[in-house]
Amino acid sequence: MSMYFWYAVLGTALDFAGLCLLWRAWKNRGGVKAVWLGWVLLCAALIVWAMAGGKDRGVALGLILVSLQAPAIIGFFAWRDKGNAPRAKQKKTKQAVTQEKTKWTVYMSRIGTALLVGPVAGIIAFVVGLGVHEVLAMVNVQEANALAVTFFGFPIVWASISVFMLISQRTRFKIIILSTLVFLSILVLILGN
């Protein structure tokens, strides 16, 4: 067996130990130290996995393992506890009491929301992404890195703006923030070109 294999075994064990500690700590709603130790073990597992599978690939493999082990732990305890837990009475729900009639104003509002989080947020994110690229070019960041930030940033900013638009209830605040972002981006683009 190669050294990498034993690193992988150690990484797997650390992953599992970290998850078990977190499960125990969170189940009892306490044990701050145990929570911290659980996270530390998970981080250590990722470091060991980086040694086992390569600096970026190893971390990805470690994360995959956590994503597989945690649901397995949940499934195991759910299966084990099922016999002990009293069966909850099914709450009777009203069976199709009414068919909802939706007013056209509600449909219009939904279309408006779709346009806001879709094309509008997308255009804002697009302009902000180009603006960020321009700023990075101005401060002499390597072009490959500036491109990566632009390409990676576009969907992240788009999604963030969409969530922000849906979550924030203060319309004026939303308009100020987003228009400032667009204004600054366009300004930077004009200055840089």
Binding site: L22, W23, W26, K27, R29, A70, I73, I74, G75, F77, A78, D81, K82, A85, P86, R87, A88, A159, S160, V163, L166, I167
Partner: peptide
Amino acid sequence: VSGFLAHPSIFKDAFAFRRSK
């Protein structure tokens, strides 16, 4: 993103599965 924001106790409940509910 919105899913994480919607669950303030997402970590503490990370292993909860109330199968008999």
